[in-house]
Amino acid sequence: MKKDLMEILACPLCKGPLELSIEEEDEKEVIKGSLRCNKCSVSYPIEDSIPNLLPPELHS
């Protein structure tokens, strides 16, 4: 996921801002990490550069 996409992504639950945590990245994008909504206390994983924004109850 390219970092500049953070500008348009919002928490699917409250539409609030998401905080990016990076575990692995290359020169182009974030490969592994998470997007966290502190207001909702929910984290959305980033795996293989794809942010998983499905409803939290569907995260494995």
């Binding site: 348009i8 992504l9 794809i50 924004l53």
Partner: peptide
């Protein structure tokens, strides 16, 4: 493609 895993009706974009 910049890909997001999600449902179309979810409000995940500004």
């Amino acid at each position: 493609i910049n890909a997001f895993l999600g449902r179309g009706e979810q409000e995940l974009l500004d």
